[in-house]
């Protein structure tokens, strides 16, 4: 009994600091977002007293469905392409020599930790109307001189893939590394071609990694804000841009909160679904390292 209690005490002792911090500064503010959705805005950019459904009503504004649709669409395409590129990479990294693997891993991680803004800016320079890529493509006659590479949905998509791809590569690589490649041999031994074995044995084998990659790319994509802000234009605005616009330009905090609440719900649905799925599949692997 006494040992049990001491164990209990020491558990609380090491758990409380981080738990309290996150309860107060993560959970409470998140709940607050939902609450403030029902508060009125004051003309001075503050939050008024009392309760109102005004924000909820403005969410019915016909502008929003288009933006939400674009946000989801861009995120789905970006996630799909990231996973399509990351899967052969994970396979490659799991199969090469350890030295080569370390090199590739380092090369993947390096841009991952490089300043986010700098990487976006690098693309802005590259795609700029007077930038190198534009000159090259015009010179080759691939695009008309008046075509803009920047400020459209394709530029947003490209840069989203550029910044999110490492988040897909790392979990897929982690799963591929654990994959028992003798299973591929077994499949070939039983008459399967390489591609068949890849589809029917390898992909199901790294399913946990694929799910994690989906989560790690799709969810941040839904909340993209800086990328459409810098390389996108008015026709490629996403939900994140609207939240920032309501916060900084219109100074309507309840309105921003309403949009955030919407985004939170949109994000929680796939997250809870996939976490549950992953737990069910393999309780142990659900704790795949998120860091590097």
């Amino acid at each position: 009994m006494k040992a049990g209690r001491r164990r209990n005490l020491s558990e609380w002792l090491v758990t409380l600091p981080s738990l309290l911090w996150l309860l107060l500064l993560f959970l409470v503010p998140t709940v607050l977002v939902f609450a403030i959705t029902f508060k009125p805005a004051t003309p001075y950019g503050g939050i008024g007293d009392g309760w109102t459904l005004a924000t909820l009503r403005t969410l019915g504004n016909p502008n929003y469905p288009a933006i939400i649709w674009r946000t989801v669409w861009l995120s789905v395409v970006a996630t799909t392409l990231c996973i399509l590129l990351a899967t052969p990479m994970g396979y490659y990294m799991a199969r090469v020599s350890p030295a080569r693997r370390r090199l590739v891993l380092l090369l993947v991680i390096l841009p991952f930790w490089t300043s986010f803004l700098v990487r976006i800016f690098a693309w802005k320079v590259l795609l700029h109307p007077e930038g190198m890529l534009k000159h090259a493509l015009t010179f080759l006659g691939l695009i008309a001189p008046e075509t803009s590479l920047l400020y459209n949905a394709y530029a947003v998509l490209l840069v989203m893939i550029y910044t999110e791809l490492p988040f897909a590569i790392l979990p897929i690589y982690a799963a591929s590394e654990k994959f028992d490649f003798r299973l591929i041999e077994a499949a070939k031994d039983l008459g399967a071609t390489s591609f068949f074995a890849f589809r029917k044995i390898f992909l199901p084998g790294i399913r946990v990694g694929l799910l994690t990659a989906f989560l790690m790319v799709f969810i941040p994509s839904l909340g993209s804000y800086v990328i459409p802000d810098i390389v996108g234009g008015p026709t490629s605005e996403m939900l994140g841009n609207k939240i920032a616009q309501r916060t900084f330009v219109d100074r309507n905090l309840p309105h921003a909160a309403g949009l955030s609440a919407l985004l939170t719900v949109a994000v929680l649905i796939p997250m809870v679904a996939i976490t549950a799925l992953r737990r069910k599949e393999s309780p142990k692997d659900a704790l795949i390292e998120e860091g590097v």
């Binding site: 077994a186 031994d189 044995i201």
Partner: peptide, 20 residues
């Protein structure tokens, strides 16, 4: 011949049963 065109089959040391 590639493995999938040979009329031989293997029992692997680890059995290599497909876990899924």
């Amino acid at each position: 011949l590639p493995p999938y065109e040979r009329k031989v089959n293997t029992i692997f040391q680890s059995y290599a049963l497909f876990p899924h």
